[in-house]
Nucleic acid binder design. Structure first.
Lengths: 115, 115
DNA sequence: CAGCATCCGCTATGATACTG
DNA sequence: CAGTATCATAGCGGATGCTG
């Protein structure tokens, strides 16, 4: 049994899902593998996420110390960059496995269409 | 861009999360890696899941052709076994990566307590 | 044993408009 | 540019009781 922020998780698998579960977190992290990205750059590569949701997910990832948020300007227009922390980088093998499966999946399931 | 059941997914990562995302699916699959398990066996190894949720998640995994449901009796008491399908087994590398990260995570983050 | 039925609150996600 | 505010909704997950 594991405890995170006063909540219980029954096994190691559920611990991982606590950090990268949900609809968007793995996708965001996937796009940060190549290096730092700005808020609007993330929006462009994930066109179906809304501003609000992206904002909330980034905040949570930052709280979990998986990504780092750096502000480069004092006054508008703002310039903010997001990068993986060292802890976040320990997720690389997981993200890689998730990505590879997603690439191969359309060949293995009729439900998935690539277009 | 990918399409599954008339919904759009912006990248391969989000496709994978469509199948194993959420709080429980990866946990359930993790416990099926070793072979077939019955409904109540799953409940025992995942004590914090409710009957209803386990039931719903199993149904969804079955619909996605990730697990197979076999009924071995005609009349009560019922005997039902769940196993990974061949398609489900393609998830093994992903589940393995998720599990390994969960095992190592408490050493890398102060937020996680093992007890 | 392996579930379904019902009710319900919470959280996640979304649409739109606005701001430092 | 990088968000926040507000409002709204859908689905997840839970509690309890019942059934073939």
């Amino acid at each position: 049994m594991y405890t995170i922020d006063s909540k219980s998780y029954p096994c190691c698998t559920s611990v991982t899902m606590r950090f990268i579960g949900g609809k968007w977190k793995a996708v965001i992290l996937h796009h940060l593998i190549g290096g730092a990205k700005r808020y609007n750059e993330l929006r462009k590569v994930i066109p179906t996420i809304t501003e609000r949701t992206l904002s909330l997910q980034l905040k949570q990832l930052e709280e979990d110390n998986i990504i780092d948020r750096k502000v480069y300007t004092e006054k508008p227009p703002l310039m903010v960059e997001y990068t993986l922390t060292d802890f976040g980088k320990t997720l690389l093998p997981v993200l890689e496995a998730i990505t590879q499966w997603g690439i191969a999946a359309p060949d293995n399931s009729k439900k998935i269409t690539k277009n």
